[in-house]
Amino acid sequence: MNELSKTLGGVPVEFLHIAIGLVALAAFVGLNAVLLVWMERKVAGHFQRRPGPFEVGPHGLLQTIVDAVKLIGKQIFVPDGADKMLFWAAPFLAFLPVFVTLLPIPWGEVIVAHEVNLGLLLILAFAGIGVLSLCLAGWSSNNKWSLLGAARAVAQSVAYEIPMLLSVLAVVFVTGTLNLSEIVSSQGTGTFSWEGSLFSWLIFKQPLAAIIYFVCALAETNRAPFDLPEAESELTAGFHTEYSGMGFGLFFLAEYANMIVVSGVATALFLGGWNSPFGATSGPWWFLAKVYVLIFVMMWLRWTYPRVRFDQLLNIAWKWLIPLAIANLLLTALLVKVFSHPLYM
């Protein structure tokens, strides 16, 4: 890295690190979007005991690319009376925060685009920009159904941000740091001999926080059973009704990229990141395997549960998740402070 910096005329190494990281992450997100759409359709097919896409490419692998070409070829139009600047700002705003949120995620022991001491805070902050994009999309479409969809989406996202933050905070209390790389490192080493590598994972020390975080992650990414904003059978397409071709494609892409982000954060926080469960073969492959398992679980949940009603959605957040998250946080704080046990340090 230092040699590269010198050859480029003294560009700061940190800058190079971030630039290369961003390019690699952009490639990763692009590749994953193609892969995940295919995976979703195949998994959906198998849950419904049918093959899914099969003809285009071997086992339908090229289906997503062909669909993307079709989307690109569609006519792009802006509805009459829509606010043009906001209309086109919305899909980009949905998509761009993904790159920032992917920066602090530790894919391997040294593989991290930009290790930030406040990594978790960065992720939570930029996840909030997605809410703004939903709002803009619904408002600028000049369509009352889109507006309704956007209002629901904003309410959902904002309501579920709170228990997400509280559950993550409990993890921070336990590990004492907001730095994702350090959280992952602290999960590899067990303090007691009986712990080994597997039981030092935070999912065993903070099971309630893990469950709350996962439910909030589903709600934040508008995945079923919380996909009311894009409920095809109820609001046409919710906030992205008026978007054709590439606009819709960008929202779609943003949804899958966000799935990777929240799964990555969940893996780093609760599942020990790149640590292997039996202590020997740690590495980025474990991280990716865990991320894909979590994404598979998200898809499993999508094809199992019916969509929640809007009032049920908010009730779950306000009456169940927030009180439970607060209770968990208080209990964790009590245990950490009172016992100050090495188990919790």
Partner: peptide, 10 residues
């Protein structure tokens, strides 16, 4: 649904 996933296609 898990059972359905592993059963053969109909």
């Amino acid at each position: 649904t898990g059972k359905n996933f592993v059963q053969p296609q109909i």
